Amino acid sequence: MTTEPAGERPDLILVVDDDEDIARFVEVNLRLQGFEVAHARDGQEALEMIERRRPDLAVVDLMMPRVDGLELTRRLRADPMTSALPVIMLTAKGMTSDKVHGLNAGADDYLVKPFDTAELVARVGSTLRRNKEFREVSPLTGLPGNSRVRREIAERVRHEVDFAVGYIDIDRFKSVNDRYGFVRGDDFISALAGSLHRAVISVGAPPAFLGHIGGDDFVIISTPAQVRPLTEAAVTDFERTADTLYDPDDARRGYVELPDRRGNVRRAALVTLSIGVALSVAERRLTDPVEAIEVASRMKSLAKHQPGSYVAMDRRRTER
């Protein structure tokens, strides 16, 4: 049985097959496992349906009229809006060439008719898991992304344990991209990921959670007692590492020079960190992951107004 966090819809599986009996068989068995199912009779109908509804996975027959399974898969892969949609190809033949053609077209997996119900469900489940894990990991840092962050906070909310959410980003990060370009900017983001990872390890158990929610924005979820040693270690490590990423002359001066639109040269200080922290403790619980992120984000904005690296903590929640 599939399990979905409270409030989230079941995964939508699009079954594309002109054989009504096969399509009905697949639909019934997937619905029994908790999936939502839609049916298209050929590739053309599937493309029209995908424009209206965004399925999480497509089970596609190889041989169909109008647009067959191979052509449908190729079109899905060629469209940026559907290129990541996982596809399981169904074929009535056991020939290796059919499997190869399907995989070459971009299918993630295949099943040979007649297939076992348990195998169908297992293939659908494993393909969905692989796809979600890939989508939830930042390609730059390898760290989990937004949905994993929300789930980690939701788990702590559900168990009513004390926790802290830290929202971290790099001050004057734009000056790095403007001065050196995006490739060097990515080096700074990777450096911050490494500094945060080392800081998480240094504070020991219970292990803090580290996520990358995009750009130079990171989230750490820890116990309240871990916030100070964790942030101090991260700031010290990152500032030392960041200095080595600047050109030697810029690092020695302590600033970079950037021309504005009028040709005037302005100075931008070297990067530091702003960290906002939301606390959920017995005196006042955070009850929603979105609220926790919003509080931490507001505190990070306050930290931005302070000189140097700064940690702003929402102590009002515990002092009331």
Rank of each mutant, 00 (worst) to 15 (best):
E119L: 15
G43Q: 02
R53W: 12
Q226N: 03
L90F: 07
L302Y: 11
E152G: 10
R298H: 11
R198V: 05
R317A: 04
T318Q: 11
Y110H: 01
V311D: 01
I220Q: 00
F188R: 03
A233E: 10
G194D: 08
V281K: 04
E319A: 08
D288K: 05
D243R: 14
D108T: 12
R262T: 15
A118L: 14
D42K: 04
P207S: 02
I170S: 01
E160P: 13
P307Q: 12
V37L: 07
R285L: 08
S83N: 13
R156V: 02
D17L: 05
S309P: 05
L128R: 02
E20H: 12
I189E: 03
F182P: 04
R135L: 15
G166R: 00
L72R: 03
E239Y: 09
S83L: 15
S301C: 12
E51N: 12
D249F: 11
F35I: 03
N104Q: 14
D19Y: 07
A208T: 00
M313Q: 06
F218I: 06
E71R: 10
Y167T: 02
R284G: 09
T3Y: 10
E4P: 09
S175D: 02
P206R: 07
L128T: 04
H197K: 14
G204S: 00
G69D: 00
I170M: 04
D250A: 11
E232Y: 02
Y310E: 11
V219T: 01
L32N: 13
I275N: 05
D19R: 12
E239K: 11
R9H: 10
E291P: 03
A118T: 11
V295W: 03
V26A: 08
V281M: 13
R41V: 12
F173Y: 11
L30E: 01
L12V: 14
R262L: 15
K132G: 09
I22N: 09
